[in-house]
Design a protein around this nucleic acid. Structure first.
Length: 410
DNA sequence: GTAGCTCTTAGTCGT
DNA sequence: ACGACTCCAGAGCTAC
């Protein structure tokens, strides 16, 4: 999106023009995000009878959908309070039903107003500055990242499934979603600033009754945690791109026609959305692993793709047509109670982050394929899920169990 | 082809 | 400190 032209005289015309630009850009982003969410929901659930995961249908347990969603989002009533499972404590907060506000889902005592004020102020500053990522190519993540004691925070009870940063320039605000459906929003800067009162930088919400599988934030309005374009209320495309479950879908950062999919059928496939045949989809590139692939992500420039598989490898595809392959051996056996490892890119194309079963963060350098573990005495969990701050290079969030860890540049 | 069993494994909570 | 519990993870294998 084009930044507004800089003029010394910030007159009314300029302000109107700026507001129109913002509005137009928001509509475009909403449209793109909506397409993305539609694709995710279309591609993820394979036909139940073909999916080995869903074979045990004779069990007396209630039938499970292949894609787990909250009862509320499925339009179903909340579970009866008398039928809660044994692990549910008497103090388990009540889940708001029907249409509810963020206030209804807030489960801490006190108020989340400090969070709103912070995100308003910082979000507007971020928006006004029309930020470009300030990437310092000299950062060596293998030696320059540190975990400070105050940057460790227990945010929720059960294990965190997904973490994300709020796209705010000046602060590190981490959102985490856990297995029970909690959202823990941690303003690590507030934690350091005052560390007092009810907030203490942590704000807990309970909007879902099932695991949180994804968090997306409106890029130009940080106070929304999702986006939906109501104008396009229909399914645009429907393809069967893999034999088994699709684990991730990632858009090329520069060319939104290109997507990379990873699947439990052992394949990574790269697709050009402009030329996918409905009956016989043909990918522009196919990468084969020996076991299920749990992620495939484009690098920040879009020139490479990293995939993570249960065959204990991390594979990098690069080159003009992603034809060059590089394989790094990495232990990805997380067992039953941990989320599957997924390598994510750092702030440039030269390195990646992935969990390590010895309670460390592995940094994999692309140049020499050397894996360097980042360790800390404060790291008491195995980090499974990661997020990089979109603006602050060197700010890396990871989660293990119900704890969040914020690594920062020295 | 598919139903069903086995095995892997960390974190939390209660005692 | 220790043990029970998680049971909606998912791959691999066997039996039918």
């Amino acid at each position: 999106m084009a930044p507004p032209k800089k003029t010394k005289a910030m007159g009314l015309d300029y302000e109107q023009q700026r507001q129109e630009n913002i509005k137009r850009n928001r509509e475009r982003i909403a449209s793109i995000l909506h397409q993305k969410s539609q694709l995710a929901s279309l591609l993820s659930p394979p036909k139940a009878n073909k999916n080995p995961i869903n074979k045990r249908t004779k069990k007396p347990n209630p039938p499970l959908t292949t894609l787990r969603r909250s009862l509320r989002s499925r339009g179903l009533p909340p579970p009866d309070s008398t039928s809660t499972s044994t692990r549910t404590s008497p103090s388990f907060p009540r889940v708001p039903t029907g249409q509810f506000s963020f206030t209804d889902a807030f489960v801490d005592s006190g108020s989340y107003r400090p969070l709103v004020e912070t995100t308003c102020w910082a979000g507007e500053r971020t928006e006004l500055r029309n930020i470009k990522k300030e990437v310092d190519l000299s950062l060596d993540a293998r030696v320059e990242l540190r975990l400070k004691k105050e940057n460790v925070r227990k945010v929720v009870g059960e294990r965190i499934m997904v973490v994300s940063f709020l796209p705010v320039l000046s602060r590190s605000i981490v959102i985490s979603g856990n297995k029970q459906g909690y959202l823990g929003i941690w303003d690590a800067d507030r934690n350091r600033e005052d560390g007092e009162g009810v907030s203490d930088g942590l704000f807990k919400f309970f909007p879902h009754r099932s695991p949180v599988s994804g968090i997306s934030v409106h890029p130009s309005s940080v106070r929304k945690v999702k986006s939906f374009d109501e104008r396009a209320g229909k399914i645009i495309y429907e393809w069967e791109l893999h034999e088994q479950r699709v684990n991730t879908i990632d858009f090329h950062p520069e060319n939104s026609n290109l997507i990379a999919t990873s699947s439990s059928d052992n394949f990574v496939r790269i697709w050009d959305l402009r030329c996918i045949d409905k009956d016989k989809p043909k990918s522009i590139r196919e990468v084969s692993h020996n076991r299920a692939v749990h992620s495939a992500y484009f690098s920040p420039t879009g020139n490479s793709i990293v995939s993570t598989s249960l065959d204990d490898t991390v594979r990098i595809q690069s080159g003009p047509q992603f034809e060059y392959s590089s394989i790094i051996v990495h232990n990805n056996q997380t067992g039953r109670w941990l989320s599957k490892f997924r390598a994510i890119w750092g702030w440039n194309d030269s390195y990646m982050f992935i969990g390590n079963m010895q309670r460390a963060v592995d940094v994999i350098s692309i140049e020499d394929n050397i894996t360097t573990p980042l360790r800390s005495e404060y790291m008491t969990n195995i980090p499974c899920v990661f997020a990089t701050h979109p603006y602050k290079e060197g700010h890396l969030a990871c989660a293990g169990g119900g704890k969040l860890y914020l690594w920062t540049k020295m």
